[in-house]
Amino acid sequence: MDRDAFVSALTAEGFAEFVLVRRDAGELEEHAHPFEAKALILTGEIHIRTGGVEHVYRPGDVFHLAANAPHTERYGPQGVQYLVGRR
C-alpha cells in the first residue's frame, strides 16, 4: 500500500491524527498506548509481539494495534520509519 492510499483509507475509517515516527535500532519493553493505531511501514522493519506472537513488518506492510493492547517493539538494524494513524 502506498502512503496516499493509506491516508485515504484511514481517514475513511475515522482516523484524524497522523504522525511520522522514526526509531533507531533497538527495542521497547512491554507497554500499551491509550489510542488505537494503524501504521504503514515506510523504511526499515519493526517486530511487534502481542499475545505471545511476534510479527515482522517491512516497507509497504500495515500493522494495527488496539487501544491499550500490551505489546513489545523491536526495530531492525537500520531502524524503522512509519506513518501512523491514531484514534
Rank of each mutant, 00 (worst) to 15 (best):
R87D: 07
E30Y: 02
A66Q: 08
A5R: 14
F63I: 06
I41D: 05
A5W: 05
T43N: 09
G76V: 02
F18P: 02
A9M: 04
V19D: 00
G26S: 15
R3G: 02
D61K: 15
G76N: 03
V56H: 11
N68V: 04
T43P: 09
H64K: 04
A16F: 08
I48L: 14
E17I: 12
I46Q: 08
A16H: 14
M1K: 13
D2M: 08
R23M: 01
A12T: 07
F15V: 08
V80P: 01
D2Q: 11
G52T: 12
E45L: 10
R86T: 06
G44C: 10
V21C: 00
Q81V: 11
A12Y: 06
G76F: 02
E36C: 14
V19A: 02
T43E: 14
A25D: 11
I46T: 10
L40E: 09
P77E: 04
I48A: 11
A67C: 05
G52S: 08
I41V: 15
R23C: 11
Q78P: 00
G26N: 11
A67P: 01
Y75D: 02
V84E: 00
T72N: 13
L10D: 03
A67G: 09
M1D: 08
R49L: 00
V7E: 05
H71F: 02
G44V: 10
S8M: 09
E17V: 14
V80R: 01
